[in-house]
Design a protein around this nucleic acid. Structure first.
Length: 784
RNA sequence: GGGCAAUUAGCUCAGUGGUAGAGCGCUUGCUCGACACGCAAGAGGUCAGUGGUCCGAUCCCACUAUUGCCCACCA
């Protein structure tokens, strides 16, 4: 036997076991293996250079469950993928390669994206392996690879055939910076300073009407003025026409209950399009489509002398002109919330354009009901899902006027405009380079215009169950595997990934995507503030891994309840490291007395302390098992921690020393068997949380105890059956006595090792009954 | 403005309808036959506030306050 090192050193053991697991294919998924499949719809992280601490936090949570299930004997399907198309990826490439997609050849940019993704993905994934993820990394998907493009296009065609996808020219949320349409779910709020401008509109007979607006640059798009129907000030004006300042055209004054008489002057101009209400009025009153803003955020010809200016410049210029004409009554400084695009943080606009949509608004109730059929852990997260759906105001816009994404498998007939769908057997296609192989079904035309747009990245990631399952199964087989068992994810993408996956699964398969949902919280800094690069309060998981090891990081991660945000705490990570050390030391102690693991065979010559610790072990196994089943890994960890530190290490190990060093062979044998059994089960119970140290201890000390290559393939502990329950009570009496002795010694400042015979302490304790230990009364914490 | 969550020891958080728990930190002591990344003994709390239900509330209910998050508000 090789020499056992005195210290446990994660930087030596962790790479060693990572290699071992890979070489021995410990986590390889075999579709034909025994055991019921437990499938996990692993979130494909967006390739962004490096894993951040939030990833480490939520991914380890799902890994606890995967490892637990594997030990329970289930055939765990735990795939891995990366999400690497769409705006997030484009932004990354633009930033790291210092380019702008809009100023490059489309093909060149796509090539650069593909090349960069290929370069950085291996390092990126490596962090997930370092943190101890037990996914099958031998086959992974990327949301832009051929297979994903094929699947994504195939299911888009399915949506189209079923009538859930449609193309329409309509107002859509538009990012002038990225120059693409985006979905409601991609918006964020930002407080920004602005001015409320009171502007005079002239009425017939020299009368005036003052309206308040923050968007004077949209005057040229003003198509109506709205007042509240009950507003006494303006009631007489309804139906009259007002003259738009500077531009001179006349617009009707209409009434609508959406107007708030208290706000501004109580009269508001409706512009195409200043905000969502304008869109609603546009539709409801069939107002003319008068666009003053172009797709790049500049003013159109409609804005006449302001054409070509940016919206900001136009605003300034128009305000100056209004002042000159004395049509600006006042300007009030305000702060208001504006919608910005989450990817680039620029203010968005609403423009009219032709986009592809997926229907969702007409099935809101259905989606809420489907949400009720999934088990949510923790349950309250479901209300967020419901709230989001209730507040949805737009169908899902899925076309993006961008470059690096899955192309629509679509052309349009040049002659009649009919949509031409690609043939399934030709997928994946790129309509820009590929051509349809048949004529237009409507008019027989042979010339086609390719669809240049690409799909929203969520349109591909929302079929992640298929992307993952089809790595290992034929498409037909995957239907049997839906719903998958578990979707783990963090709460920030309930309105996107989670919701869209429910939608897609329902549309394609009329099934739920998963049975259980496990929602993780976020990592905050040590003071409870959001981590962000600009605040400089981020922590790097790579540094933690190097300094303390993956097990310590995972120990910290396991410390908070599911769904709870966690404050980053280096102290807790240190406690994790201490736990690995403690485990190692108990292992060494055990090995001092017995080289080969000997387990309890029967309860024949077990002594009181043995029966007691085995009973406590059984309780802990029951508690840990129950909690891993319920995804409450933090409670499982608490139970294991408490048992290991306060009962096994602090108490039992101390107590049996006199037996291990004594002459009574039977007693010694019972102690070593009990210790081995209990400690082996502790190692197993810790294995899902701390996979490295438990593997090191398993391989070094317990290899012969169970015929398995790895602790992670060993059997999850079961309660040990034995019939000496009375002794447990007996032993608790001894503990009370021990407490007395401990207290006495500590108060007098006497060393704990001193024999009590030499002290003037009277105790009722029966020394014979509890052995030599009581004479010394070693360390004991409180026992419960 | 709507919703969700939280409020328990100096800090981070468990928890229960019947006299309050852990880890870290703090104090004091201890090189005791694995472990100083250790061991032992301590100090420390009107369980946010106000009402209500109950024999009894930190726990259940109502309201209030504070904090965080999601959504709406963008004229």
């Amino acid at each position: 036997m090789k020499e056992i090192s005195k210290r446990y050193n994660p930087s030596e053991t962790e790479p060693k076991w990572r290699e071992f697991w890979e070489k021995e294919q410990i986590y390889k998924f075999n579709p034909k293996a025994k055991g019921e499949v437990f499938s996990i719809d692993t979130p494909p992280p967006t390739v962004s250079g490096k894993m951040h601490i939030g990833h480490a936090y939520s991914y380890t949570h799902e890994d606890f469950i995967a490892r637990y299930r594997r030990m329970k004997g289930e055939n765990v399907f735990f795939p891995f993928g990366t999400d690497n198309n769409g705006l997030a990826t484009e932004r990354l490439i633009e930033k790291t390669k210092n380019v702008r997609a809009n100023r490059m050849e489309r093909n060149e940019f796509i090539k650069l994206c593909n090349k960069t993704i290929k370069e950085i993905t291996p390092d990126f994934i490596c962090d997930w392996q370092k943190v101890g993820m037990s996914c099958d990394f031998s086959k992974i998907y990327s949301t832009i690879d051929d297979n994903s493009r094929r699947i994504s296009q195939k299911y888009f065609i399915d949506l189209h055939k079923k009538g859930y996808a449609y193309r329409q020219e309509a107002p859509v949320v538009w990012c002038p910076y990225c120059q693409t349409a985006i979905a409601q779910a991609e918006l964020e709020d930002k407080e920004s300073e602005s001015y409320f401008n009171d502007i005079i509109f002239k009425l017939p007979k020299n009368k005036k009407l003052t309206i308040a607006t923050t968007r004077p640059e949209l005057l040229s798009s003003c198509v109506a003025i709205f007042v509240h129907p009950d507003d006494k000030r303006y009631k007489k004006l309804i139906g009259q026409k007002a003259q738009v300042p500077i531009f001179g055209n006349r617009v009707e004054i209409l009434s609508d209950k959406k107007v708030d008489p208290e706000k501004g002057t109580g009269a508001v101009m409706c512009c195409i399009f200043g905000d969502k209400t304008d869109v609603e009025w546009f539709k409801e009153y069939k107002l003319p489509l008068v666009m003053s803003l172009d797709k790049d955020g500049s003013m159109t010809k409609q804005a006449k002398k302001y054409a070509g200016l940016s919206a900001k410049e136009a605003r300034k210029s128009i305000i100056e002109d209004l002042q000159k004409k004395k049509l600006l009554v006042s300007q009030k400084k305000i702060t208001h919330a504006v919608n910005i695009h989450e990817r680039c943080k620029n203010e968005v606009e609403i423009l009219n354009s032709k986009q592809w949509y997926i229907k969702i608004l007409d099935k809101k109730k259905k989606f809420i009901k489907l949400g009720e059929k999934i088990r949510w852990y923790p349950p309250f997260m479901r209300t967020r899902y419901e709230n989001w759906i209730k507040n949805l105001g737009w169908d899902w816009a899925i076309s993006r006027q961008r470059f690096f994404g899955v192309p629509f498998p679509i052309w349009y007939c040049e002659k009649c405009g009919e949509v031409k769908i690609a043939d399934e057997k030709d997928l994946p296609v790129d309509p820009l380079t590929d051509k349809p192989k048949s004529k237009c079904v409507k008019c027989g035309g042979t010339k086609f215009i390719p669809e240049k747009d690409v799909l929203d990245t969520w349109a591909t990631s929302s079929i992640s169950p298929q992307l993952a399952l089809q790595l290992f199964f034929k498409e037909k087989e995957t239907r049997e595997l839906i719903p998958m068992n578990l979707r783990p994810q963090a709460h920030d993408i309930i309105s996107t990934w989670l919701f869209y996956t429910v939608v897609r699964s329902h549309y394609h398969f009329e099934k739920l995507p998963w049975k259980d949902l496990m929602i993780s919280g976020h990592v905050l800094d040590s003071k409870g503030k959001k981590m962000s690069k600009s605040l400089g309060n981020t922590v790097s998981p790579q540094e933690i891994l190097e300094k303390y090891g993956a097990d310590a990081l995972r120990f910290w991660s396991a410390g908070s309840s599911l769904g709870q945000d966690i404050n980053y705490s280096e102290e807790e990570i240190k406690t994790g490291r201490r736990t690995t050390t403690k485990l190692w030391n108990v292992a060494r102690f055990m090995a001092m007395h017995e080289k080969k693991p000997k387990l309890v065979k029967n309860s024949d010559h077990l002594e009181r302390a043995d029966v007691w610790i085995l009973g406590e072990m059984n309780k802990t196994i029951a508690e840990a098992t129950k909690n891993f089943e319920n995804y409450t890994y933090a409670k499982a960890k608490d139970a294991i921690d408490d048992f290991f530190w306060s009962k096994l290490a602090d108490y039992y190990v101390e107590f049996i020393k006199y037996r291990l060093f004594g002459e009574d062979k039977k007693s010694k044998d019972a102690a070593i068997r009990t210790l081995s059994t209990v400690f082996f089960n502790v190692i197993k119970m810790y294995a899902p949380i701390m996979p490295f140290v438990t593997e090191e201890i398993f391989q070094t000390f317990f290899k012969g105890a169970e015929k398995t290559k790895s602790v992670h393939l060993s059997k999850w502990p079961e309660e040990l059956k034995f019939s000496r329950k009375n002794d447990i009570l007996d032993f608790k009496e001894a503990i009370k006595a021990i407490d007395e002795i401990r207290k006495f010694k500590t108060e007098k400042g006497i060393s704990l090792g001193i024999d009590i015979k030499s002290l003037k302490l009277k105790t009722k304790v029966n020394l014979k009954k509890y052995g030599e230990f009581l004479k010394k009364a070693g360390r004991v914490k409180k026992l419960t």
